[in-house]
């Protein structure tokens, strides 16, 4: 190991908490999966602890270990598309300094967000979801009456669900204005 390398490793190990994951893997924030993997392999070749296992300098080994654990952490977050998107947004925002590491707080935020999206899309109650699914099927089959009934019942379980209302409007438009068989 050259003395320059030693200095470099120690500087990096000391500054880890100031660098974001993209910086750790030396990547632009727009990087895609293939690039991320290539960068992970490149940094692994440089900082894998096995490279330094035989180096008789415990401080250097500890510094390398610290760097490599962070490389793995960065890879774990960035290789997952949803985590990567959230992380990129977090470190581009005003709270950047507090968001450099993807912790349990961010993890649960991400989970909540996914849950909310799912709920918006498919309803918040089991009955609402079931009826909404039925309505979509009926719509696909062109049975507008049945679809309308399912959506109206779904709205009884979840009054004001924008998604349900939107679909109901579509159904109402499709329905024939007046039923020719009904006696007025």
């Amino acid at each position: 190991m050259t003395p320059e390398f030693r200095i470099e490793v120690e500087a990096l190990a000391g500054a880890l908490d100031l660098i974001d994951y993209f910086g750790i893997l030396k990547l632009p924030r727009t990087a895609e999966l293939a690039e991320i993997k290539a960068a992970y392999y490149r940094e692994s070749r440089a900082y894998h602890p096995d490279r330094f296992a035989a180096v008789p300098d415990p401080e250097l080994r500890a510094a390398v270990g610290k760097i490599y654990r962070r490389i793995n952490e960065a890879y774990t977050v960035l290789r997952d598309e949803q985590r990567r998107r959230k992380y990129a947004a977090d470190v581009s925002g005003p709270d950047r300094a507090a968001k450099l590491r993807f912790t349990e707080a961010e993890e649960s935020q991400l989970k909540d967000e996914q849950k909310r999206k799912l709920e918006e899309q498919f309803g918040q109650t089991p009955n609402g979801r079931k009826l909404y699914a039925t309505a979509l099927q009926e719509m696909a089959a062109g049975r507008w009456d049945a679809a309308g009934r399912a959506l109206k019942t779904a709205l009884m379980y979840e009054p004001g669900n924008p998604r349900f209302q939107e679909q109901l409007a579509v159904v109402e438009q499709q329905k024939p204005r007046s039923d020719p068989f009904r006696i007025k």
Binding site: S44, R45, H48, D50, R51, A53, A54, V55
Partner: peptide, 15 residues
């Protein structure tokens, strides 16, 4: 590999 300090420099290491 774990005993060989020079493997990486010699390009013989595997990770």
């Amino acid at each position: 590999a774990l005993l060989d300090e020079g493997a990486a420099a010699a390009g013989q290491a595997s990770y």
